[in-house]
């Protein structure tokens, strides 16, 4: 039955090559697949060695995908207004089938992603992989690190509980002290900064953490930041390929 199906035009139109284990088919498996063609066809052996790469970049990407999917599912039950947000969280945790599981996965994957991003950076530094020709990709990576932290931080407010509001209050209050642009920063008052026109106001949509803040953080968390992060991720992966694939020793010194 399966063999018969394999001979149909439908099957051939989907897979376009046979599954015999040949060099050519192995290559086609990568090249003909929109998801896998991110990879080169062949890599140096040490690139498949987890001891060298720690696999942290790939795991970070996986966690980003998990977060996107679970995040979209959570959006079905969550309303970003001060009136409903907390109730929706309670509803989600108590009455929605698999609600706690999805929310837990979203939260733990977010924590784990921050962790893996940091470890990925540590590995890339220790192997000197930011050195020419990969300088710019390191810069893109730093931007992605910042975006990861911002994504996680903006998500922190959404449950609208005590933990959320105070973590975000403490976090965003630092913006008051921005030099020049904050109303309590050095030279801020001299430039006419007030609680209702400084950089913190843009973040909060008010002079204190309140309902407009929830909405701003929600939009940032669900739409704005993920799109920016996705764009930079595309650049990051593309540059990994264009800068010569995964890093490795320049000239093999075999003994």
């Amino acid at each position: 039955m399966l063999e018969a199906f394999k001979k149909t035009e439908v099957y051939k139109s989907i897979f376009r090559h046979s599954y015999q284990d040949t060099q050519r088919n192995r290559a086609l498996q990568i090249v003909d697949n929109v998801f896998l063609h991110l990879h080169p066809v062949r890599v140096p052996r040490h690139a498949t060695n987890i001891g060298y790469t720690w696999g942290m970049g790939g795991i970070t990407f996986l966690l980003f995908l998990v977060l996107t999917i679970t995040g979209i599912i959570l959006m079905f039950y969550y309303r970003p207004t001060a009136q409903y947000a907390y109730e929706d969280m309670k509803y989600l945790m108590n009455d929605v089938p698999f609600g706690p599981l999805i929310r837990n996965m979203h939260r733990w994957a977010a924590h784990a992603m921050v962790l893996t991003v940091m470890l990925h950076m540590f590995r890339v530094f220790l192997t000197g992989s930011y050195k020419p020709p990969r300088q710019f990709n390191w810069v893109v990576g730093v931007i992605l690190l910042v975006l990861t932290l911002l994504l996680s931080f903006s998500g922190y407010l959404l449950p609208w509980d005590q933990l959320a509001i105070w973590a975000v209050t403490v976090g965003t209050n630092m913006a008051r002290a921005t030099p020049l642009l904050g109303h309590e920063g050095p030279f801020g008052p001299e430039l006419g900064m007030m609680p209702d026109n400084d950089v913190r106001f843009v973040l909060l949509g008010g002079t204190e953490v309140g309902p407009p803040t929830l909405l701003r953080f929600y939009v940032g968390h669900c739409i704005f930041l993920p799109i920016i992060a996705a764009i930079f991720m595309a650049v990051h992966f593309w540059r990994v390929r264009k800068d010569g694939g995964i890093s490795g020793p320049e000239t093999p010194k075999k003994t």
Partner: peptide
């Protein structure tokens, strides 16, 4: 766009 983020009326 920046100005858009500074509403004229606050509900505080």
């Amino acid at each position: 766009a920046l100005r858009f983020m500074f509403p004229r009326v606050l509900f505080e």
